[in-house]
Amino acid sequence: MSFPITRHRRLRGTAGIRGMVRETVLNTLDFIQPIFVTYGTGVKSEIGSMPGVYHFSLDMLKAEVDEIAALGIPAVLLFGIPETKDAIGTSGFADDGIVQEATRLIKQWYPELLVVADTCLCEFTDHGHCGMVHTHVVDGVVHGDVINDASLELLTRTAVSQAKAGADIIAPSNMMDGFVQAIRTGLDENGFEHVPIMSYSVKYASAFYGPFREAADSAPQFGNRKTYQMDPANLREAIREADSDVLEGADMLMVKPALAYLDVIRTIRDQFDLPLVAYNVSGEYSMVKAAALQGWIDEQAVVLEMLTGMKRAGADIIITYFAKDAARWLRG
């Protein structure tokens, strides 16, 4: 059949009909809200490049968590900014580290709220890289190589300390080869067989991370992360990375960033049957916020369309700095 008998517009005529045949539906249960926790007291400091996103000291954290829980958002993702840093990121795996302390508090306040712990070293190392580095100086310029296997031991210690503090999900974002197997083994050996791993399986060396590096104070002090994060031009490599993580015991897979990588999300969705996470990253957030502040776009409409696109591409879960706003809009 063809026009005039077939009229596709019949299913678009009213809001009721459009809702009835809608193929992709956003739900507040899809979202994870990131939180940046820091040392000190009385700190609620807006991040300059991320309007509406704040650093919270532990004594200021509860109001934020209260709001997240009241909106029905099921999970938070914790990033920590420590008071001191060193070459191996000691404060990342310290029992009294900032992420560990925040985790304990959140689980006291809201036992059912899922705490996802970002497992990386970049926020805790003085050089800003995601693992141990071997440095050398050539013509007065510092160069460094990230040491893969030695970094795995430190990342495993970090994951175990986060699980001991009460983290419900470990989310390693370091992109070291073999990190899922190392962390899975460490968790199991310490009695945390029940704690799932949400692996940053497909993490690109992206230009969209700029605002996050301000937020987490994690910019590399030399070089870049292109030797361990993925080349944005590559798609087949994403399948290899995800396949390795599945074989090593990952429980969930992630693609990061999301907006410029919807084809990657769809490819990973089609290739693997594990739950799939899309990370709507800081640069994607800040671009929308900047345009909205200028009055150039309808922020609500753009954000909900963008998040719907990520879910339509195949994401089951979306990490987004828009989680609170999106939850309010969906309620409305």
Rank of each mutant, 00 (worst) to 15 (best):
G314T: 04
T14E: 11
A326C: 09
S206F: 02
H134K: 07
F272H: 03
D231F: 07
K311Y: 04
A258L: 07
K226Q: 14
D177I: 02
K256E: 06
W329G: 06
T308W: 04
H8G: 10
D325T: 05
R312K: 13
A326K: 09
E193M: 09
F124V: 15
S151C: 08
A327L: 10
L330G: 11
Q162G: 13
M1Y: 10
V255Q: 08
D263A: 05
A63M: 06
Q162Y: 14
P211V: 00
I17C: 03
M20H: 10
L77W: 00
N280C: 05
R269M: 12
K44F: 04
I319Q: 00
E64P: 04
S244F: 03
L152W: 07
R240N: 10
V99N: 13
I98N: 11
H136R: 13
A258C: 09
L114K: 06
T156F: 11
H143P: 05
V76I: 08
I17F: 03
L113K: 00
A205K: 02
C130L: 08
M310G: 01
S282G: 04
I319D: 00
D298Q: 13
G186S: 14
Q300M: 05
L105F: 12
E46C: 01
W109G: 11
Y321D: 02
L253K: 12
D96G: 12
D95I: 09
V281P: 00
A215P: 06
T158S: 15
K324P: 01
L276T: 00
D66A: 14
R12L: 14
V25A: 04
H136Q: 12
A163W: 10
M175G: 01
I106L: 08
L152N: 13
R225M: 07
D251L: 09
L154P: 05
Y279P: 00
L105S: 13
M176N: 07
F212M: 04
K289I: 06
K311M: 05
M176G: 03
V281I: 08
R157S: 13
E189S: 15
D263F: 05
F31D: 01
E112I: 03
H8A: 12
Q294E: 13
K107A: 06
P4W: 10
G140D: 05
G80L: 08
I88H: 11
A70S: 15
T103A: 12
V142C: 03
E237N: 09
M306A: 12
M287R: 09
T135C: 07
R157W: 06
L293G: 14
E241D: 04
R240I: 09
I106S: 03
P232A: 08
L259T: 11
I98P: 14
R12Q: 14
T185Y: 05
S2A: 14
E123V: 11
T267V: 13
T119Y: 10
A75R: 01
I35W: 02
R18A: 05
Q229F: 10
D149L: 09
F208C: 00
V277K: 01
N280M: 02
D118W: 02
W109C: 10
Q108T: 14
N280Q: 09
G178F: 03
V246W: 03
A205I: 00
G166A: 05
N174E: 14
Q221L: 09
D270L: 12
A87V: 07
Y209A: 04
G131R: 08
T156L: 12
